[in-house]
């Protein structure tokens, strides 16, 4: 079967530094795929290339939206990438701090709705219906990540773990078929991480593919279906969690002692 996301020989140079070096990654439907590697390996850069924030130096990013024609993402603007059905979260949380939690999610629905200036001023029935739909649907997404009680709270007032969940909710609101999560468990306590684990699996079970960058090895090993390991921008291994746990190159480059605990 054709992968949903097929990245071929992706290369990204920053001046003289090669942050990503001919990286191949595939994500298939219904999978949780993890991208792991030491700090500075180029994982976030990889996300930024795919989502259009950086323009890759070379390589191909091919997206296969379900039921649509294959699309090459290279050089597309970030908002166009999101429109294709690829949503992401950020490693350093990038919420809209002075907007309410609900509004943050409502922003996510921007690209799936289309009220224009005319509608905004005259509030015709169609606009009002759409607006109601935005509120209701956003609220139901908030319920999914269990933030509904904070709906009218400013995003900046949320605790850290809740902010990360809100980022996921906001990404879900763009109605994606694939979710890119950049270290969603960073800064969470074990309890929160466990809940996040459940949330991610739940999203997968609802039919979304997930590409996950994560440092928490327990989380990665327990939920991913497939793992890519990068170091210095190069892929050093790929395989199922079991294969990765046994791979000597990985153990040497990155996992170290962690693997014995996993």
């Amino acid at each position: 079967m054709e992968p949903l996301l097929n990245v071929q020989k992706l290369t990204m140079d920053f001046g003289g530094i090669r942050a990503i070096d001919r990286l191949d990654v595939q994500v298939h439907a219904g999978q949780i795929v993890a991208l792991i590697g030491p700090n500075g390996a180029g994982k976030t850069t990889f996300f930024n290339c795919i989502t259009g924030i950086y323009k890759p130096t070379a390589g191909h990013i091919l997206l296969q939206p379900p039921g649509k024609k294959q699309k090459r993402l290279n050089g597309l603007k970030p908002n166009k990438v999101t429109e294709q059905g690829l949503a992401r979260t950020f490693q350093n949380i990038r919420l809209f701090p002075n907007m309410t939690v609900l509004e943050n999610v409502m922003i996510g629905m921007h690209c799936r709705t289309n009220a224009k200036i005319f509608g905004a001023i005259f509030r015709n029935p169609q606009t009002r219906k759409e607006e109601q739909y935005i509120v209701d649907h956003s609220y139901s997404i908030l319920k999914k990540v269990r933030l509904q009680t904070f709906a009218n709270e400013y995003a900046k007032n949320l605790p850290y773990g809740a902010q990360r969940r809100l980022e996921i909710a906001r990404a879900l609101a763009t109605d994606p078929f694939m979710l890119l999560l950049d270290e969603p468990a960073a800064g969470m306590n074990p309890q929160e991480t466990l809940e996040l684990d459940n949330l991610i699996t739940q999203i997968r079970d609802e039919g979304l593919a997930i590409l996950l960058i994560e440092h928490d090895m327990k989380l990665v090993m327990s939920i991913s279906d497939y793992i890519f390991v990068v170091d210095y921008g190069k892929k050093i291994a790929e395989g199922t969690p079991e294969e990765i746990a046994q791979n000597p190159a990985v153990i040497k480059a990155y996992l170290g002692e962690d693997v014995e605990h996993a």
Binding site: T82, R94, E130
Partner: peptide, 24 residues
């Protein structure tokens, strides 16, 4: 309105705004 929210979001964080599908 939908547009007004997008303006506010743009003021808050341009990159996140684009990543959420808003045409900057």
């Amino acid at each position: 309105s939908r547009i007004g929210r997008a303006w506010f979001a743009l003021r808050e964080d341009e990159i996140a705004c684009q990543a959420m599908g808003i045409d900057k």
